[in-house]
Write a protein that binds this DNA or RNA. Structure first.
Length: 497
DNA sequence: AGGGTACCCGTA
DNA sequence: AACATACGGGTGCCCT
C-alpha cells in the first residue's frame, strides 16, 4: 500500500485492478487538485502546469511531483477545498475506474440491424428530398441546404417570422428555423426527419459499434476535470447524451442489455436542481411545495397565472416548466419569449410575476451576483469554486454572461456534488455488504442518475438501500427524491417499487 | 492529408 | 450585436 501521487491516477488504478492488485488508500491526483483550484486551466497535465506554476519543465520525477503537490496542498487549504478533494474527489476516482472497467454490454447484431433499418429509411428520405429540390446535393451540408431552400426553392419565412442568421451571417438551417418553415414547403419536413435519423445513425448507432471491446462491452471514459461546475463528462463514447424518447432511439437503447442473471437498475434524482435552488434561496413557497410533494411545475403555473392548482392546463404547466428551468440558467425575457412563443411583452410579464411569487429566489440571485462581483468568483456550499473575472467587465454582454454563469454555478455544482457523494457512499455500502463489483456493479453516471447492474435476486433489498442512501446523501431544506427503474435492457426500464 | 473551425444536435 | 447553464461529437469546408 504505497502513496499515490501523480497525474491521471484513474488509469493507474484501472491498471492495478486489472492485475487484481489493491488500490492505495492515499491518493493525490494532481490534475484533479489543480482543477479544484482553478477550473479554467487549458489542460491538467504536468507538461502544462509545471511551467505555469513552478516555472520548470515537467519531467515526471518524484521531485517535481512533490513540488506540484506542495503547491496544490497549500492552495486547497487556502481555498478550503481540502474536504472536497480528500473526502469526495479522491474516493470518487476508484468508483469511476470501476465504472469504466465494468462498461456496459452492447449487442453488436442488434446495432447492425438498426443501422441497416435506419439506412433504408434515410435512402427513401434522400430520394424524396432530391425530388423536391429538383437536384442532387449534400443534405449534410448546411450551406447547400440553405442554398436549396432559400435560393432555389425561394422559401421565405411565414408572416410575422424572420429567418435566423448564424454567427457568420448565413441563414441558419437549424431545427428551430426549419420548424417555422414546415408548412411553407414539403421538403422541410423531409429534411427535419433526415437530420434526426442521420444524427442517430452517425453519432450513436455507427460510432458505438466501433467502440465495442473484446468483452462485448462499451467502456466510456469519464473526465473528472472536464467541466467548470464540478460535473463529470464522458467521452469515447459520451454515454451522457444518448438519445431517448423516440421509437428508434429507444430501439438503440434496447441494444444495451444487462448481464445474464442481472438487471439494470437506475436511480434518478427527481428535479434535483430545482430542489437545490429552493433550498439555497430559502424560498418559502418552493420549499413548501417540495415538502408536500406538489408537482413543482404545476405549482409555478398556478402561481404565475394566478389560478388554483386544479385550473392549471397542460399548456400552462409547460410554460411554467420552461420558466423554472430558465430561472436556473438566468434566462432573460427575450430568450423566454423565443423558447415559449410568447410575445416579448408577455414574456416580460410572466418573468416579473414569477419573481414576485418567488421573491426569495430573486433576492438570492442578487446576493450571488453581488458576491461574484466582490470576489470575482462564486462558490457552492462545499467550497467548489469558479472564477468569473468577466463579472466586472465593461462589456455589457460579457458581464451579463458572467452573471448568468454565477447564478447557475451554485445550483448545478451542488447538484453535481450530491451525485458524487452518492456514488462514494453507495460504493462504501456495497463494499460493506460484499456486493461491490460482484452482485452489484456501478455502470453509468449521467449527471443526476446512476445506473447499476444488479443480480436479480437481491434487487429489492439493494434498491431500497441505495435509494435511501441517495435521498440522504446531502441535507437540504427540502427532501430529495429518487425514483427507481429496472429492466433487462436500457431501453425498457420500468418504474420499480 | 491533416488541422482548425462552423454548424448542427444529442443529453442533464 | 450578442440575450439560457453545462457538455462531446459528426460532418462540411477552408486552409496549409
Amino acid at each position: 500500500m504505497t502513496m499515490f501521487t501523480g497525474f491521471n491516477l484513474k488509469e493507474k488504478i484501472k491498471e492495478l485492478k486489472r492485475r487484481g492488485k489493491d488500490v492505495p488508500r492515499e491518493i493525490f491526483d494532481l490534475g484533479v487538485a489543480f482543477w479544484l483550484i482553478n477550473v479554467d486551466e487549458e489542460k491538467y497535465t504536468g507538461e502544462y502546469l509545471a511551467p505555469k506554476y513552478l516555472h520548470k519543465e515537467f519531467n515526471n520525477s518524484e521531485a517535481i511531483l512533490e513540488e506540484l503537490k506542495k503547491y496544490a496542498e497549500n492552495k486547497l487549504k487556502e481555498f478550503n477545498l481540502g474536504r472536497l478533494f480528500y473526502k469526495l474527489e479522491m474516493p470518487l476516482l476508484e468508483v469511476l475506474a470501476d465504472m469504466e472497467l465494468n462498461g456496459i454490454s452492447a449487442d453488436k447484431n442488434k446495432l447492425a440491424n438498426l443501422d441497416k433499418k435506419i439506412g433504408k429509411i434515410l435512402k427513401g428520405l434522400t430520394e424524396k428530398i432530391y425530388n423536391e429540390a429538383g437536384k442532387v446535393f449534400n443534405i449534410n451540408s448546411p450551406k447547400q441546404v440553405a442554398d436549396i431552400l432559400f435560393n432555389k426553392l425561394k422559401i421565405i419565412a411565414p408572416v410575422g417570422g424572420r429567418l435566423k442568421k448564424t454567427s457568420t451571417g448565413a441563414v441558419s438551417t437549424n431545427i428551430e428555423t426549419l420548424a417555422t418553415l414546415k408548412n411553407e414547403h414539403k421538403i422541410v419536413g423531409f429534411i427535419l426527419e433526415y437530420r434526426e435519423l442521420f444524427k442517430l445513425q452517425s453519432t450513436y448507432v455507427k460510432s458505438f459499434q466501433e467502440l465495442i471491446s473484446k468483452d462485448r462491452r462499451i467502456h466510456t471514459t469519464y473526465l473528472q476535470t472536464g467541466t467548470v461546475t464540478g460535473r463529470l463528462s464522458s467521452e469515447n463514447p459520451n454515454m451522457q447524451n444518448v438519445p431517448a424518447g423516440t421509437e428508434l432511439s429507444n430501439e438503440f437503447k434496447r441494444c444495451f442489455e444487462a448481464k445474464k442473471g442481472y438487471e439494470f437498475v437506475s436511480f434518478d434524482y427527481s428535479q434535483v436542481e430545482l430542489r437545490v435552488l429552493a433550498s439555497l434561496s430559502g424560498d418559502p413557497k418552493m420549499i413548501d411545495a417540495f415538502k408536500k410533494g406538489v408537482d413543482i411545475h404545476k405549482l409555478t403555473a398556478s402561481q404565475v397565472n394566478n389560478v388554483p392548482l386544479e385550473k392549471v392546463t397542460p399548456e400552462m404547466r409547460n410554460l411554467a416548466k420552461t420558466l423554472n428551468f430558465g430561472v436556473v440558467y438566468g434566462m432573460g425575457f427575450i430568450a423566454f419569449a423565443k423558447s415559449s412563443g410568447l410575445s416579448v411583452a408577455e414574456a416580460k410579464k410572466f418573468i416579473a410575476e414569477y419573481f414576485s411569487d418567488f421573491k426569495e429566489i430573486k433576492k438570492w440571485q442578487e446576493r450571488v451576483k453581488a458576491e461574484a462581483r466582490k470576489n470575482c468568483f462564486v462558490s457552492n456550499l462545499n467550497g467548489r469554486r469558479r472564477w468569473l473575472l468577466n463579472i466586472v467587465s465593461s462589456y455589457q454582454f460579457l458581464a451579463s454572461q458572467a452573471e448568468r454563469e454565477a447564478i447557475n454555478m451554485p445550483v448545478q455544482s451542488l447538484a453535481a456534488d450530491i451525485l458524487k457523494i452518492s456514488m462514494v457512499k453507495v460504493a462504501e455500502y456495497l463494499k460493506e455488504k460484499g456486493w461491490y463489483g460482484g452482485s452489484v456493479r456501478p455502470l453509468l453516471t449521467i449527471h443526476d442518475e446512476l445506473l447499476f447492474e444488479v443480480k436479480s435476486d437481491i434487487i429489492k433489498k439493494v434498491k431500497a438501500d441505495i435509494a435511501d442512501i441517495m435521498e440522504n446523501a446531502f441535507k437540504l431544506s427540502v427532501p430529495l427524491k429518487v425514483p427507481v427503474k429496472a429492466g433487462k435492457n436500457w431501453g425498457e426500464m420500468k418504474s420499480f417499487v
